[in-house]
């Protein structure tokens, strides 16, 4: 761990001003906001994150969940994962989100981790976390250790020659299926970014993971009103029963009309470099009968472009079974 200064932000504007001095909001950021700290402090102890300034935002008034006029929810960035998962409106209108949150981490971590922090959760790639090995995400241009190394848990979708690190979040997968929007305040004012545009593919710049710029502060996440008659579900598959990142997960939102699928949103987790919306699967589902054959075709479409590595080929089949089962559950 490096020496750093610590300050408590008095207001969002105060926090934004302090962070705007950094040269990047991505890997290597000199200024970091700390909320729950469940990712940041861990990575600082490993010397992966080495900010010289840490701005504590825990006291900002961003810890509320509000109903939006016309439906939908506005979730403060500091709402803890445990509180979000157990909120009555979330359980009622967005069960996929509640389920995703409760499948992640442990009770203690969920009590600390925040909505905004979870959006920015970093990969669990073992090489990213080990500063004695090459990693393009941590040290651009140094190489990817995972491609020829331990890659059992890494991504098969959205990978590049430079990086195959999987996004570990459960929450983000559900938010992607729910078409959430991220509200960001920065030096230029406030903007809303659809979650599908928030995360970047690694490409040649795996150190850049999101659209966050210096000074940007996530203030809220907005959930659109629940789809009429839709059901949603999150299924997470992993080696053990608890406290493990997904080997494959699926968040689905499905509505049927007279047996035909009229609304489908599909997102996969644990298998991709970012929370993975699958328009290919959605296109297969739309208008089709909710049958095992349809679901199998959707799963095949979702994984068609998968690029397995030496140890993670099983994730292709596992993700298919995961998606088929999640769809079967909501269609039942």
């Amino acid at each position: 761990m490096e020496l750093f200064t610590y300050a408590r932000a008095a207001s969002p504007a105060d926090a934004i001003k302090a962070a705007a001095a950094a040269s990047t909001a991505q890997q290597g950021a000199e200024v970091r906001f700390v909320a729950g700290g469940t990712t940041l402090l861990d990575l600082m102890k490993l010397d992966v994150e080495r900010p010289s300034r840490v701005i504590d935002i825990n006291h900002l008034p961003l810890a509320h969940i509000e109903r939006m006029p016309g439906g939908g929810l506005r979730i403060g960035a500091l709402v803890r994962n445990a509180d979000l998962a157990n909120h009555a409106d979330v359980k009622q209108g967005y069960p996929v989100l509640s389920q995703a949150l409760l499948s992640g981490a442990s009770g203690q971590l969920r009590n600390m981790a925040t909505t905004g922090g979870n959006l920015l959760q970093r990969t669990r790639c073992v090489y990213f976390r080990d500063t004695d090995t090459p990693c393009n995400k941590r040290r651009p241009g140094s190489g990817c250790s995972a491609i020829d190394g331990f890659n059992r848990t890494m991504a098969v979708l959205g990978t590049s020659e430079q990086c195959i690190a999987s996004n570990p979040s459960d929450m983000n997968v559900a938010l992607t299926a729910l078409e959430a929007a991220v509200v960001i305040r920065g030096i230029g004012g406030e903007r809303q970014v659809p979650i599908g545009d928030f995360f970047l593919l690694p490409g040649d710049t795996p150190d850049r993971e999101t659209v966050m710029m210096p000074g940007d502060l996530i203030t809220h996440v907005i959930l659109p009103p629940p789809q009429d008659g839709a059901r949603s579900h999150y299924l997470k598959l992993r080696d053990r029963a608890s406290y493990e990142f997904a080997l494959a997960s699926a968040a689905v939102v499905l509505a049927t009309d007279k047996g035909a699928i009229r609304h489908a949103r599909v997102a996969l987790g644990g298998v991709a470099t970012r929370p993975w919306r699958s328009p290919e699967a959605e296109r297969v589902l739309l208008g089709k009968p909710a049958t095992p054959a349809t679901f199998a075709a959707a799963a095949a479409a979702a994984l068609r472009d998968a690029k397995p590595q030496s140890q993670n080929g099983f994730k292709v089949e596992l993700a298919k079974r995961c998606l088929i089962n999640a769809l079967t559950t909501v269609a039942a």
Binding site: R240, Y243, E244
Partner: peptide, 10 residues
């Protein structure tokens, strides 16, 4: 987290 052992849930 990466050395997987049985948890209470297992």
């Amino acid at each position: 987290a990466d050395y997987i052992m049985a948890t209470h849930a297992d």
